[in-house]
Design a protein around this nucleic acid. Sequence first.
DNA 1: TAGTGGTCTAGACCACAAA
DNA 2: TTGTGGTCTAGACCACTAG
Lengths: 246, 246
Amino acid sequence: MNALPRYQQLKQQIIGQISRGELKPRDRVPSENELVGSAGVSRMTANRALRELNDEGYVERVAGVGTFVADLQSASHVLEVRNIADEIARRRHRHSATVITQKNERATDEIATSLRIDRGASVFHLLLVHRENDVPIQLEERYVVASFAPNCMQQDFCRQTPSAWLSAIAPLQEAEHKVRAAMPNDEIRKHLQLGDREPCLVVIRRTWSNGQPVSFARLYHPGSRFELTGHYTPPGIRKSTPEPAP
Amino acid sequence: MNALPRYQQLKQQIIGQISRGELKPRDRVPSENELVGSAGVSRMTANRALRELNDEGYVERVAGVGTFVADLQSASHVLEVRNIADEIARRRHRHSATVITQKNERATDEIATSLRIDRGASVFHLLLVHRENDVPIQLEERYVVASFAPNCMQQDFCRQTPSAWLSAIAPLQEAEHKVRAAMPNDEIRKHLQLGDREPCLVVIRRTWSNGQPVSFARLYHPGSRFELTGHYTPPGIRKSTPEPAP
DNA sequence: TAGTGGTCTAGACCACAAA
DNA sequence: TTGTGGTCTAGACCACTAG
């Protein structure tokens, strides 16, 4: 009947004090050494409890100073951005795709800046339409740093999505997203079969591998047929969210 | 020039092997005791490295069996949805708001369903415009379960945002988001001072407290002036993502 | 100088899996 | 029985901060 490990008990105890208001934001939390005395645990155990509370956003620790209750204020809600093929599969619908453009190009200023390469450097350019049960649901415009894209011209992106292909050749470590609403131009409207006054939900995604930008994509979705269904809030608060780049 | 702590070096080494493909999903990762021998660290240090890799989703550990590379498959990217006032403050701009509607109403079918209350039950209805340096940036249409909204008519929502007020009276535990692109109706267009062909980025948010839906909000943003600047992917994969409700 | 967190060690006991 | 992860201990050294 030995319930929780000691470090978990310690965590629960401190979380309880915070949620009951006995410990308020910016209040001092007992130091590791104090917990050694008061809770009768070793310092490593106290350290693990406080370190995990820090990782989970309940407290903030400053070496040489102490441990303090975090002011949680803006619990940052999160929203998931799924791969379109996965999203469709999750709905048990059928995914299909048509390649419109598949070629190597010279990087424009915008693309070069986004991918941190020289203007005019070689990039792989891809344009394709994703369909859900034969209805266009996403126009994917993607640029990949050429050196990361071996055999890119031999790939059949109707069978393997660019996203799946990329994660196979360069395991992504970081990603950056922007979501906008915008009116499509005529070409996009045509490919997505949009009405005249129908806006697009645009997801702009940049992915990184080994500290290097690898891919830049603009994903256009019909406003009437697509939504980002985010969800839930974790109890712990996320802390700093360092940008991969300045 | 003592670079990284040993457990971090160990983590990097293993992450490197995974990302270079030397270790593939479901492959066995050296056990703690093996790392004690091969890496020349103590078992606690090896344990911390593997434990953190587990927390971050790189590997999966099974007591009594071993540690294995996780099959990461669909790394779900996340996107942050910030409180508008915080977002503006973060940009060091000035936030202001104007209340358009503030009254108690009977719940419509849609609102009643969203908030899990009876049709015709009393709800607090709020409509206000948020401005960033005097430029309209968000139209907030919010409904709050009346029993959760004491003194709602006495509140001055120009001074305290509904979001801040809510989190003060009912600490939110879960939230659900949807993001869409849509054309605004005339009233919304007027309040946000939109052009004729300018779409809106619409965030629909439902918040929960103590297992009860508390608030339902539609947040309209000018497509030309607003984007959800989501970011980064945690290296770790989120494991379970339980839905707050069926 | 004293206290803090950050790290590391070399032991230890346990429950559990597989052989 | 052997090996695994899960936990815990009682020390230790370090860099940093504050008084």
